[in-house]
Amino acid sequence: MNNKYAIVALLGILAVLALTMTGPGLTVSHWNDQVKIEGSMSTGSLEWDITPTGLSWNTNTVMHFDAGVRASGDGPGQTGIIGINLVNAYPNGYGAYVFQVRNEGTIPVHVTFWFETGTGCAGNLADYILINPVFDAPFYNGEFDLLNYSIASIQDGWTSPYTRPLSWWLNNVNSMSTAMSLESNMESGTVLYTNTTSTTIMQYDTDNILMPGEKTIIFVWIGISDELQQHEEYMGESCGDAYNPAFYIHYYAVQALP
């Protein structure tokens, strides 16, 4: 064998050996380090309800309310209905019905209400139903006082004083003896609806938020306008339940935005 060829062959073998050894060496010798991000996310819940408290106040004992939940709407995308009948109503008879809103979930909610009058006699009785929702508890110095709170806005026949201590409302309206938020986040307001029609749905969208665990009381003033006296066609016995006009509260809640 020629010496030149022998040298070339030897160099070739060395190169192969070098590559063979370097190859695994490269793989192994590459140090590495890992970092990681571990995340977990749990969602909350949107739960709330509106319940009639069974408490009401009216100008006398003749007229009273018969209320009940017609459809529950305690979840997202659901609309609930509370039906209230003014039993044995008459012109110039007024009263306040009380119901409670509770946020039982973990997410703040906006509650929106629609007030709808039922079809009365000839479908026009609704024109004489007055609706006045009050989205805040009228407390003065810890006393529940409808008279002083509402005197500026209520009409004749609405002025009978009705004063209870705060503790009474805590125990009776909310069936709880522990302190809780009766200072509603809902904006107090006086919205008086008159001359409604049975086909009109009135909406009151609360601007404020009911926080998780919070409760509030909503008073709805309902009455029959004395103008009805001028329309005896609605007062005759032929009108059937015209003396018990129906009134519906539709409610709907959506989560509050961040």
Binding site: W31, N32, Q34, I37, G39, S42, T43, G44, L46, P76
Partner: peptide
């Protein structure tokens, strides 16, 4: 969907660095 309420999810993002 309402069914997303009270659920949980986890994820892991791993980055490998080499010399």
């Amino acid at each position: 969907p309402e069914a997303m309420m009270d659920t949980s999810m986890e994820f892991s993002l791993v980055l490998t660095w080499i010399q």
